[in-house]
Design a protein around this nucleic acid. Structure first.
Length: 643
DNA sequence: ACTTCGCATCAGGTCACGAA
DNA sequence: TTCGTGACCTGATGCGAAGT
């Protein structure tokens, strides 16, 4: 594996912008590090030689490039005029569509090809009134699209000289294709042009700012500006990601059919993805169904490896899923249960009597719960119909409606739905005073495209929540006792969020978690599951002599202790134990005060697999000296294997 | 020659724990 | 309460092998 790119000081040198174009090279420190490892001056020279050769080669290359470019890129007349005030400028009228990936077409925020305008900002104070101009300028004008460093212009300035602009143009890395390919040279007619297809060939991670800008300038050599400079255009800075990132892109909003790793915090083939897959949760729909039917089970599947914060992010993202308009009907001898695609009850018919959501509380709660679970278990056999629901019908369970729906349309609908029912309005859903657990969605009784929300459980911690008897109704979405705690937790989390900045954060979270009564079960489950997923870092019990030393408890791979030990040539468990036996205090010193006594003891418990025989009957000092000698000449001894 | 894919590694974030 | 550290996660990406 090659070392990661280094960002040395030379790259930050503003006076040498071309430094950024260099192929990243090993830092001096990394070279020295290698040398220390091999511990020989010969290695030092052999390590430095290729580095020096490359540095010299690249510097010569850059000098040649700069010398060869400058005369071509700026005409003498342009150079003189560069610093003159200019009211005419190129602009990108629209922002770019983000994120941008390599090998993908660069488009504007409306997903249309990028445009470039020439505008005159004379008499324009706020930039909003700039208009394309076509007069007083030659027509057409050739324009070149270039890539700029994201840090340009420095200091947030909105003006620059032609030379500054030119010095911040980025070129491809050594051995790579041109950084920008496609229609990089365009012709502006009547003050406006559209760029066809352009795309990046390389990501932006290799420059210090990690961001690019697109720039547009009048093509070098064009002497057609009638004595005035046309100022260059630049876009906002943006990150260009490797095209592979596009494959892993999260969907906003996700669809029911999306694979579950499209949700935030669930990486493709990552630990959570595997855990979910092992429970047959493959799609966002699967995820949401289980969330509705048995939230605690879903939480346990993910385990403590998924923190509360991550869980919230994932759930929040999942909740933005568009549910579509399908309805699933679970029929029995005396009942029919109408469910939405994520197992929320829309309506129930029991013994011929129709129960819209508002009246579901009148039915035996356990009875309905069991039906829902049964429906969930037999999901594939349910009858599917087109319910004609509004396409934007979304989840509204267990959270503030506002938070769940960035879509204002849906928010408005939810608001009206609350009002219709005479239930809690959004205004009352004050973040600081209460949280609202919304029950389930139903199509409006009138059959209109609106839908209603029923408050199932509403918890108030500090303020009042006027939901009347509705608060006593039940929610099929909050089926177990834990979910009453969820009400508490939601409120608690609101309070917690408001205290985010203060130092009670961790203790407070711990307290909340303890209320959830899930630690032991989840932890043991998560540990079991986690072991399979973190096998790369797994500690060995017991460790083998040949094991790398970081297999011992409290010694993280590539962590501080690992490095300290490695620097003393203690690479294996055997090395560790040898020094432990021969000179325990030295070993302790190597690890330093960073390893607490408790950690030290734990590492010892894990490391001491071989009992040291009692030497009290033998001359201790003599034996110790022999052992030290043996240790010092370890590799020169002939060893026999004990039978 | 170029693309695709899998592997390995790294960076950065979050969290828990323990010591001071 | 603060700080240092390890653990473990996702996401990014360099590299080489295999495929086209």
């Amino acid at each position: 594996m090659a070392a990661k790119r280094f960002f040395n000081d030379a790259e930050s040198d503003q006076d040498q912008p071309n430094e950024k174009r260099k192929r990243p090279r090993p830092s001096f420190a990394s070279v020295i590090g290698e040398v220390v490892l091999v511990n020989s001056m010969q290695s030092l020279f052999s390590s430095l030689e290729p580095l020096l050769r490359r540095v010299v080669s690249e510097e010569v290359d850059h000098c040649l490039r700069r010398c060869s470019l400058r005369p071509m890129t700026r005409s003498p007349s342009m150079r003189i005029q560069a610093l003159e005030p200019s009211s005419v400028q190129l602009v990108f009228p629209k922002k770019l569509s983000l994120p941008i990936f390599t090998a993908s077409k660069i488009l504007d925020e409306d997903n249309n090809p990028i445009q470039i305008q020439i505008v005159d900002k004379t008499n324009n104070t706020n930039g909003a009134q700039m208009l394309p101009i076509a007069t007083d300028l030659p027509n057409p004008i050739k324009v070149e699209i270039v890539v700029l460093d994201g840090d340009f212009p420095t200091g947030g300035r909105d003006d620059w000289t032609t030379e500054e602009f030119e010095n911040n143009i980025l070129r491809e890395r050594t051995g790579k294709r041109p950084l920008l390919t496609g229609d990089v040279n365009v012709t502006v007619r009547d003050g406006l042009t559209t760029i066809g297809e352009i795309e990046f060939t390389d990501n932006s991670s290799w420059i210090r700012s990690r961001k690019f800008r697109l720039g547009a300038r009048v093509a070098p050599g064009t002497s057609a500006c009638q004595g005035s400079r046309i100022r260059e255009a630049i876009t906002d800075a943006f990150v260009v990601k490797d095209h592979r990132g596009e494959l892993y892109k999260k969907h906003h909003p996700p669809t029911l059919e999306d694979e579950v790793w499209r949700l935030e915090k669930i990486g493709k083939e990552g630990a959570f993805h595997k855990k979910l897959a092992s429970e047959n949760i493959h799609t966002v729909q699967d995820f949401l169904k289980l969330f509705v039917v048995d939230r605690s089970k879903l939480r346990k599947i993910l385990g403590v490896g998924m923190s509360e914060k991550m869980w919230e992010v994932t759930v929040k993202h999942a909740r933005t899923c568009v549910l579509g308009n399908k309805m699933f009907i679970f029929r029995g001898a005396h009942f029919a249960l109408f469910l939405n695609p994520i197992c929320q009850v829309l309506k129930a018919i029991v013994n011929g009597q129709v129960f819209p959501t508002r009246e579901l509380s009148n039915i035996n709660r356990t009875y309905i719960e069991n039906l829902v679970r049964e429906a969930y278990a037999n999901w594939n056999s349910l009858e599917v119909v087109d319910a004609g629901l509004n396409e934007t019908a979304l989840l509204t369970q267990g959270d503030h409606v506002v938070e769940q729906y960035p879509n204002h349309h849906v928010e408005a609908m939810s608001r009206s739905a609350f009002d219709q029912n005479g239930h809690l309005g959004l205004a009352a859903a004050d973040h600081h005073s209460k949280s609202v657990n919304v029950g389930y969605l139903v199509p409006s009784n009138s059959g209109s495209s609106n839908f209603e929300c029923s408050n199932a459980i509403s918890e108030t911690r500090e303020g009042s929540c006027d939901v009347g008897e509705e608060a006593e109704t039940f929610s099929l979405l909050d089926t177990d006792d834990e979910d009453h705690d969820d009400g508490d937790r939601s409120s608690a989390q609101v309070v917690y969020e408001s205290r985010k900045a203060d130092s009670h954060k961790k203790r407070f979270r711990k307290k909340i978690l303890s209320q959830e009564d899930e630690d032991d079960e989840i932890q043991s489950l998560s540990k079991q599951q986690g072991e399979g997923n973190s096998i790369l870092y797994k500690k060995h019990h017991p460790p083998m002599l040949e094991d790398e030393v970081w297999r011992l408890e409290k010694t993280g791979k590539d962590g501080a202790f690992h490095k300290k030990l490695a620097s003393e040539n203690i690479n294996t468990v055997q090395d560790f134990l040898k020094l432990f036996v021969v000179d325990r205090s030295k070993l302790r010193r190597i690890l330093g005060v960073g390893m607490s006594e408790k950690m030290w003891e734990r590492a010892m418990v894990n490391g001491q697999v071989f009992p040291i025989r009692d030497l009290s009957n033998i001359n201790r000092t003599e034996i110790e000296n022999l052992v030290r000698e043996a240790y010092a000449n370890w590799n020169s001894w002939k060893w026999s294997t004990q039978s």
